[in-house]
Design a protein around this nucleic acid. Structure first.
Lengths: 183, 183
DNA sequence: TGTACATCAGTGAACGCGCGTTCACTGATGTAC
DNA sequence: TGTACATCAGTGAACGCGCGTTCACTGATGTAC
């Protein structure tokens, strides 16, 4: 059957959005191409009309995740007075809601340890987004703001990884609150 | 063939040590039982004489990794004067050497995002080790020292995850140095 | 206007492969008589 | 002391399964004449 001119682009976008969610929830190795296509309402054979390989999709899915996180943190930052900019970002990021929704959250906290094992090309694209995130947190181009932003990003990412990895609600909450209170 | 009485225990230990290294380097899903047994100098069939399942091994392998990290950080802490305790731990942890040797490094930074997807039993064991690590960093039982230790652990873990995930040596080094300089 | 053909997003069977796991077997040594 | 049997860590073929990927095919619509 013939489709409208932008149909294929729409389908591709749908696959990327689905993959972005599923990869964050279950890890890159935790979801197969067939499952992904089924979640997107398609059959697995059509996948290769849109992507060269699963790895090719992974890079796009990570980008889509960063888009969400940048928009979310950008909004939190723009709503706060300049003095409380970093504090506002920290509280937006380090929340129980974010902890409990890996599938809609930060790609670094969801897939960070996986990314270190991906190919160089994907890691370069990942790095560009990490750098943008550092700039967003820093808020200006000074060296000291940048260094501080790196440390804050590290604290947020590590805090979220820890809060998600431990089993008890008590320790997990303790981690979320300790990191929140650190600024 | 018959073996000395402690032979089986020795073999088991060898498998756990190998798994601990390989899992950290390639992820839990990145190494198979057959590869693991081969690395340990055995054939894959014998695996189930030592462990109920691969998951059963994962928990032991993570424990072995924590043993290494606790010993390493404990030593760094005990060599420093009390005032510089946390600083000594931070510098021991957040180093290029640690960044470049995932396979001998901290289990949280190597497998943190994987652990969140493991079964409850393994996550409980993981959590107990995280709690020990927090106590080691804190150095005393006060609430404020504990909170501070949690934040420092989050910063170290996140910093190492970021430094390993990005592709360029320049940004990776910038992350290592920014986190080091934060105390 | 009517017919034949081209297009192409999506379908679903099939591929080779490596996975975790099972199991009948091996063979050197210890034990029983 | 010599022979028959028990032990058991480790072997390696085989299992069903899901993976990423390929490919001949479908069928609704657009285009050519």
């Amino acid at each position: 059957m013939r489709y409208p001119p932008d149909h294929k682009a729409e389908t591709r976008k749908q696959i990327v959005e689905t993959a972005s969610t599923e990869f964050r929830a279950h890890g890159v190795n935790g979801v197969g191409v067939a499952q992904l296509m089924k979640s997107a309402g398609l059959t697995h054979g059509g996948f290769y009309a849109h992507f060269d390989s699963k790895d090719d999709l992974v890079a796009d899915a990570i980008d889509a995740a960063f888009d969400q996180t940048m928009a979310f943190l950008g909004e939190a930052a723009s709503e706060a007075p300049q003095r409380q900019r970093k504090r506002a970002i920290l509280h937006a990021y380090m929340s129980k809601k974010h902890r409990d929704h890996t599938e809609r959250g930060c790609a670094i906290a969801a897939l960070g340890t996986d990314v270190a094992r991906l190919d160089a090309r994907t890691r370069r694209r990942f790095e560009a987004r990490v750098d943008s995130l550092i700039r967003l947190i820093a808020g200006n181009e000074s060296q000291s703001a940048r260094e501080d932003a790196i440390v804050m990003l590290a604290t947020m990412v590590g805090g979220l990884v820890l809060a998600r990895a431990v089993r008890s609600e008590a320790l997990s909450t303790e981690i979320v609150e300790a990191v929140q209170a650190s600024r």
